[in-house]
Design a protein around this nucleic acid. Structure first.
Length: 492
RNA sequence: GGCGUUUUGGCCGAGUGGCUAGGCAGAGGUCUGCAAAACCUCGUACAGCGGUUCGAAUCCGCUAGACGCCUCCA
């Protein structure tokens, strides 16, 4: 029987601002849409955190036995750099600076995006549609919204009429704001704008002559507004109403608000049952963002080539660091925090490696099934990975006590412990065990031989030789660990 | 200025009205030829002030700080 039938999953819904019991539209199936990146530069760690948060959601839903269709778009049409009419889109701008074709920029950074997410062990989504691949669908939606009188055309551009929409619907329902407030509080009213109101947003923009990315439309040559693509693609692949929509907290307004407005006009229904927002990654007390220069790239962490960290950290250690915080909490990035996370991660991996050394007995002195349920309970409570990790460290303690034979475990319980640890560490959290990959067989053989020689020296009380072997290996980054059951080693 | 979030022990971070995660660092111990590693044990912290309550870090109010959104942004 599927686990979702016995596990009650609760999800915090940004729309209701409360945790709700998750019930998909079609039993056993989940449709999830997550706003993907605009591929105009390398993804930074902040971007990665959001996608990792939803990777956790994706992985756990699958673990519960749901069949998940996970759609995450690539924004390759670019969107306006600012709201000014002469704005050119980000991708076209970058292309001019670097003197290459826009699609070359798109290709380069799409590849970078995929490579980075793969390193950090994110699963690929089920469908990864592009904005430029759905121009036709977007044009159709604009026509529909125009026909319903909720948009207007000016000079080859089409704008959504927010104030009119707000007469019958609540624009701001998700972000908890009232359009009246923002009308009064808009600082600089942009007089030259062709929009009726500053709150209106573009569905279609006329392409200026220099604009390279352009498509024909009933309103002339142009390109779609940013908010529209997500509506077009989510509707196409998941339906008019689907289960989960995710994205970074900073997309709540206006992006997701606009999506709701577009869908409500076009389809007359609420597009999303559960809105999920992942929180920001903070660096030096500020949000990590490309535009401010306050960011670190994943590769700079993995190689150690940066000014923030004292050393390089593996993708898994980095992933573990982020999983130790809840996805809805702001997370502070720092060298100390990453170092602490790395050590904890190593400890967890060590315990997993030690599972094979445990001897099973007839009876168990530890309650494995109760522990296992606590792991599920943690994740069922709005994907609480920090609490899950705390439970996993409890399992680490079990493993160590079992190794010292201070606790006992039956073979059935041992299998359950082992399987559950593997499921949560590898399948759900998506961590990888690099500790064994570091050493190849030949190296293992050589070190084992040296360990043997050192043991002989020690048996002969030849401390000088035994210490020499130990110290010289240490210089090479191979640490010997003398334990009760003999000597083991780790490669740094 | 508006809206919202947040403030937890040396650091990072969970959390429920009473049973007070976890990791790192630190202290003590076990083990060891020594060392390292490993393991075990230990910390009663919740911004300040006031209120509700038998009881609050957890609920309410005020004050202060921080952050996010209000423009592209994960």
């Amino acid at each position: 029987m599927e686990l979702y039938k016995t596990n009650q999953l609760k999800i915090y819904n940004s729309l209701s601002k409360s945790k709700e019991i998750f019930k998909p539209i079609v039993e056993g199936n989940v449709g999830m849409y997550v706003c993907g990146p605009t591929v105009y530069s390398n993804v930074h760690l902040g971007n990665v955190r959001t996608f990792m948060s939803f990777d956790l959601v994706f992985r756990y839903l699958k673990q519960l036995g749901f069949k998940v269709r996970y759609v995450r778009n690539i924004t390759d049409a670019g969107h306006l750099e600012n709201d000014a009419d002469e704005g050119e889109d980000r991708i076209a701008k970058k292309a001019r600076i670097e003197k290459i074709e826009p699609m070359e920029v798109v290709q380069r950074y799409t590849v970078d995006f995929h490579e980075t997410l793969q390193k950090i062990n994110n699963l690929p989504p089920s469908i990864e549609p592009t904005a430029t691949g759905h121009i036709v669908e977007q044009i159709e939606i604009i026509k529909d919204i125009l026909a319903k009188g909720m948009a207007y055309e000016v000079n080859g551009s089409v704008y959504f009429d927010v104030l009119k929409y707000n007469e019958t619907e609540h624009y701001g329902i998700l972000s908890g704001r009232n359009i009246e407030d923002s009308v009064h509080n808009t600082r600089e009213l942009d007089g030259q704008s062709e929009k009726k109101n500053p709150q209106d947003f573009a569905l279609w923009k006329r392409a200026e002559e220099k604009h390279i990315m352009r498509w024909p439309s009933p309103w002339g040559e142009g390109f779609p507004g940013w908010h529209l693509e997500c509506t077009a693609m989510s509707t196409k692949y998941l339906g008019e109403t689907f289960d989960i929509h995710g994205g970074g907290m900073d997309l709540k307004f206006p992006h997701h608000e606009c999506e709701i407005a577009q869908s409500k006009v076009k389809n007359k229904v609420n597009p999303v049952n559960y809105w999920m927002h992942a929180n920001m990654l903070i660096l030096n007390g500020q949000k990590m963002a490309k535009s401010t220069g306050n960011y670190i790239l994943p590769n700079e962490i993995f190689t150690g080539e940066n000014k923030i960290l004292s050393k390089a950290f593996s993708p898994s250690a980095t992933r573990f660091f982020m999983m130790q915080a809840h996805y809805r909490s702001v997370l502070d990035f720092s060298n100390d925090a990453l170092e602490a996370a790395e050590k904890g991660y190593m400890k967890l991996m060590e315990a997993l490696n030690n599972l094979k050394n445990i001897e099973v007995g007839k009876v168990s002195s530890i309650n494995v099934s109760e522990w296992k349920q606590r792991c599920y309970d943690a994740m069922n409570d709005d994907f609480n990975s920090p609490v899950l990790i705390a439970n996993l460290f409890e399992a680490v303690k079990y493993v160590n006590l079992l190794l010292e034979k201070k606790e006992t475990i039956s073979s059935a319980d041992f299998e359950e412990l082992k399987n559950t640890m593997n499921i949560f560490v590898y399948d759900v959290l998506g961590l990888q065990n690099n500790s064994e990959e570091n050493a190849c067989d030949k190296l293992n053989g050589v070190v084992e031989m040296l360990i043997k020689m050192r043991k002989e020296a020690r048996d002969n009380r030849d401390w000088a030789l035994s210490d020499k072997i130990r110290d010289e290996l240490a210089v090479l980054g191979i640490q010997l660990k003398d334990g009760k059951e003999g000597t083991t080693f780790s490669v740094n």
